[in-house]
Design a protein around this nucleic acid. Structure first.
Lengths: 237, 237
DNA sequence: CCGATAGTCAACAGCATTGTTGACTATCGT
DNA sequence: ACGATAGTCAACAATGCTGTTGACTATCGG
C-alpha cells in the first residue's frame, strides 16, 4: 500500500489560479450558462470540494473572473493601470480607445459579455477597474472644449460598451473567417467614430427638436446642480 | 371510481398559449438561465410531456417567445405591422421610435434581452418581424437628405438596440422606484437623440480625422458597389 | 522535530432536469 | 356511431449539480 494518494504537492495560490484559468476556459467556451463549479473543478483537475474552498459559490467564481477580465481589458485599452491614471483626459486618443475596445471584444466575446453584465448589474460599478477609468476619463473629456456640450456620460458609456461587446454576437453569426471578423471589428470602430463626429441627423433640418433638446438639457443640469449627487447613479448610500 | 382523471377538456391551441404565457413569466422573472421546460410546464399546469409535444426543446420554446416579443415590440414602436410597411421612411418620427423602444425595454428588461440575443445570434435576422422593419426603415432613412452621409446602418442598428435593451440592466441596479426608472428611460432617449444630432466631438477640431474617415468611407462604399451583396451580412447563401 | 493550520480530497444525500415510452381518451371526420 | 388521430399524462432511467462533512496530510512556525 504505497501510493494510494498521489501525495500531491500543495500550492494554494497555484490551485486558485488553475481554477480561475479553467473558469475562463469554460466561460469562453460555453458562456455563463455553461459554467458549473463541477465542470470547472474537473477541468482544473481539482476536487470539487477544493474549488468550493476557494470560491464559496458559482457567483463568486464568476465575479473573480470578471475582475480578471477587467484588468486585461484595462491593459488592452488604456495600458498599465498605474500609468493611465496620470494621463490627462485631453491627451487620450479616442480613436485608439474605441479600436482596442472593439478588438478586445471581438477576440473575447464570451468573457467580454460576462464582464459587461457583471459591471452593469453591480451595485458598485466603481469597484471595477476598467469601468472606473473609462467612465472618469470620459467624464473629464466631456468637460473639455473638444467635446459637445450636454453629454450624458453615463448613458454614453453604457451605450458604447454594450455596443462593443454585443457587436461580436452579431459578427460571429455573420462572419466565418478570422479575417471577416477583423473587418467587422474595423467597421464597428469606424462607425462609432463617424457617429461621434457627426451623429446621424442633419441638425440644421431639425431646428425645433434641437432647440427643445437644448432647453431640456439646461433644465436637467440645473436640477442636478441643486440636488448634489446623492440620488445620482453612484449611490454612495 | 368516478373521477380518477379530472377529465380535462382539450384545446391544443389554448394549451400552447398557456405554455407560452408561462414561459414568458418565467423568463421575465429569472431570465433565460432560469427557464427549464419542467418549470414552465409546472407553471402552465401542464404535464412536462405535453410541453415537449408542443416545443421539442428548451431552445424552441425560447425562440417562440422571442417571436412573440418581436411582435409586441413592433406594435409598441411602429404600430400595426400591416400599416407600418406603408409609411414612408421620411415620415417616421425618430424621437418617438427611440422613446417607445427605450420604454419597452425598460418595462420588459428580461424579455427584451432574450429577444435581442435571439435576433443577433440568429443566422437569419430578417426572419424577425421587428428587426426587419427596424433595419429597413433605418436603411431607407439613411438614404434621405435628413441623414448624414456614410452611415453604416447595420452597426448603428445593433448599437442602438443593444444600448436600449442593456441600459435597463444598469437602470435596475441604480433606480429603485418605478418613477426613477422612468426617468432613466427618458434620460436614455434624450441622450440618444442628442447623439444623433451632434455626436460627441466637435468635428471642426478633428479635421484630419474627419478627412481620413470620409476617404475610408468612400473606398468602402465603392468596394461594396462592386462586390454586389453576396458577402454582406444578409447572407442569402 | 512537533503540533497547529489549512489545503485537499472522497463520499453522502438531496434535488432538478432531461428525453422517452406506453397508456389513456377527447375530438373529429366519415 | 366508430375508428383514426393526436393531445395529454404518469412513470422511468440517466445524468449532473449542489453543499456539506470528516478524514487525510503537506506545510509552516516555534
Amino acid at each position: 500500500m504505497a501510493d494510494k494518494r498521489p501525495a500531491k504537492k500543495r500550492d494554494p495560490e497555484r490551485t486558485r489560479e488553475a481554477i480561475l484559468d479553467a473558469a475562463r476556459e469554460v466561460l469562453a467556451l460555453d458562456g455563463k450558462e455553461g459554467l458549473s463549479v463541477a465542470r470547472v473543478a474537473q477541468r482544473a483537475k481539482v476536487n470539487r470540494g477544493t474549488a468550493y474552498q476557494h470560491f464559496q459559490t458559482r457567483e463568486q467564481l464568476i465575479e473573480a473572473t470578471a475582475a480578471w477580465v477587467s484588468e486585461k481589458l484595462h491593459r488592452a485599452v488604456f495600458g498599465d493601470p498605474e500609468i493611465a491614471s496620470n494621463v490627462p483626459a485631453e491627451n487620450i486618443n479616442i480613436e485608439s480607445v474605441n479600436k482596442h475596445l472593439a478588438e478586445f471584444a471581438m477576440e473575447n466575446p464570451e468573457l467580454g459579455g460576462v464582464w459587461l453584465f457583471e459591471v452593469l448589474s453591480s451595485r458598485r460599478p466603481a469597484n471595477d477597474m476598467f469601468w472606473r477609468t473609462y467612465e472618469s476619463k470620459f467624464e473629464q473629456f466631456a468637460a473639455t472644449k473638444f467635446a459637445q456640450p450636454d453629454i450624458d456620460v453615463e448613458v454614453l458609456s453604457v451605450l458604447i460598451l454594450a455596443g462593443s461587446f454585443i457587436w461580436p454576437v452579431w459578427a460571429r453569426a455573420h462572419a466565418r473567417t478570422a479575417n471577416e471578423r477583423q473587418e467587422m471589428s474595423a467597421r464597428f470602430s469606424r462607425e462609432i467614430l463617424r457617429l461621434c463626429l457627426h451623429g446621424t441627423l442633419r441638425p440644421e433640418l431639425y431646428a425645433e427638436l434641437d432647440a427643445r433638446l437644448t432647453k431640456e438639457a439646461k433644465a436637467v443640469s440645473e436640477l442636478r446642480a441643486v440636488v448634489p449627487k446623492t440620488r445620482r447613479a453612484s449611490s454612495n448610500s
